[in-house]
Design a protein around this nucleic acid. Structure first.
Lengths: 182, 182
DNA sequence: CCTGAAGACTTCAACAGTAAAGTTCGAAGC
DNA sequence: GCTTCGAACTTTACTGTTGAAGTCTTCAGG
């Protein structure tokens, strides 16, 4: 028993070998793409989580800030729209906004012209945390792609968007429960 | 207001334009790769979730079955090892195993040679659900990559593993809290 | 006006996860 | 061979999410 130091993650190639052992008609080339995608995403989320934690916010809170900023001026959205955008239920959005208001990241006010509506806006502090998170994220992302030439980056982006188009066509319910955003 | 049918997801290009509007020094090529990766992964998880739901299990349960099968004969692991492999806490593993035992997907027994240890094994039903899920997953994955030639698939896999290597080197704590597995 | 229906958010109960404390068994030292 | 330490799992208290029920506002008819 010299090669089971812990039950940590096997290497990608080991794992693909295990799949082939247990399930014969598997295309290793396909599996490699899919598994690498999945692992990569996982690692990236860990990295983002560490960065946002340094700012004293969670990834969940970062997502709300992102949605508000990307919505453009005047940087306001209703809880319902935010919920759709982030892929969570209105109930979860209510609670998340509660916390973020308490932390001073966003504001919540009633829409006076339509008093059933609520408007969530970003505070100065929220905006500056978003900005700081963006700075860290772009440094990380640039580092991540460092081994790829400009041409390779282009090809990679193009291939990924082709795949994305394919799933989106097959699964056009963008408003559904899609979990976190990019 | 003809172009805001809901607050659903903007297209990838719209989103990148929004990023550039709000954050000048952003490399759109990098952002495209990163955002496409993230979205693609999200969509894939939705697809897997639907498939496992058809089998009457959750993605979480599927992951446990995967880990057991990929471990190889005799398809048994301790809760602690499973927890490390899936990236969750031992406490969460205890609960998850509780549920899966109740549903007849796995077994839990004490290790008689070391009575502090517990051994989780897969049942016939668990194995057959895993197999069925694998069949559905490979059909989906093959379809996903359909627009890519064999050569493109190879290049894509190679580039992704290169990125993966880079994050793993920078973030070598594979045993940490990494969330779900592939 | 007043009523009824629909929309937007919130509240409530149940569930899955984490962190930390607790339990039980095995092993090493005195 | 008792005691103490450490390892492996479970329990407990708390957090965040979901689905369903509840509240409040608006609007369209009668």
């Amino acid at each position: 028993m010299a090669d089971t130091p812990g039950a940590s993650e096997p290497s990608l190639d080991e794992q693909i070998a295990a799949y082939q052992r247990e399930f014969q008609d598997l295309d290793p080339q396909v599996e490699k793409v899919v598994s690498a995608l999945s692992r990569l995403n996982r690692r990236m989320n860990v990295a983002y989580g560490r960065q946002t934690a340094e700012l004293g916010i969670s990834n969940a809170e970062w997502e709300v800030l992102k949605a508000l900023v990307l919505a453009g001026a005047p940087y306001r959205m209703g809880p319902g729209d935010l919920a759709k955008r982030l892929g969570l239920t209105p109930a979860a959005m209510t609670h998340r906004i509660d916390r973020m208001v308490a932390e001073g990241l966003v504001t919540r006010e009633r829409d006076e012209s339509n008093r059933v509506r609520v408007i969530v806006g970003i505070t100065e502090e929220g905006r500056s945390k978003w900005l700081e998170a963006m700075r860290m994220a772009t440094v990380f992302e640039e580092d991540l792609l460092q081994d790829l030439s400009g041409e390779e980056r282009g090809r990679l982006g193009e291939m990924l968007t082709r795949l994305l188009r394919r799933v989106e066509d097959a699964q056009p319910d963008a408003g559904g429960r899609l979990s976190d955003l990019d």
